[in-house]
């Protein structure tokens, strides 16, 4: 199992388009992908392969989310997800 905390890079937050890019990326891997965020002091965990789940986090620009990947290809999956954040979800 691998964990990583990342800050949301798209300007409008993790809205429909970046969320769907996230899902497209995470769905290419076997590993289980979970995304969590602290909301009102409570940790909310959603499935990283679910667009609705990701949007439920209402993660705004700059907010931190924790990514947890678990499975045979977890390392590659996390690397691709990190790349997505680094490239700001291809927003330009």
């Amino acid at each position: 199992m691998k964990k990583k905390t990342l800050a949301i890079t798209p300007k409008l937050g993790l809205h429909a388009r970046p969320a769907s890019l996230f899902v497209q990326t995470s769905s290419r891997f076997q590993a289980d992908v979970k995304v969590s965020k602290l909301m009102d002091g409570e940790e909310v965990v959603v499935n990283g392969k679910s667009v609705m789940g990701l949007m439920m986090l209402a993660a705004a620009f700059g907010e931190k989310v924790q990514i947890t990947v678990d499975g045979p290809d977890e390392e590659a999956a996390l690397a691709k997800i990190e790349e997505l954040f680094r490239k700001k979800f291809d927003e330009d």
């Binding site: 429909a16 769907s20 499935n47």
Partner: peptide
């Protein structure tokens, strides 16, 4: 496209 993604959403 968004609606398609919702439709294939595991939720």
């Amino acid at each position: 496209d968004t609606h398609r993604l919702i439709l294939s959403d595991p939720l």
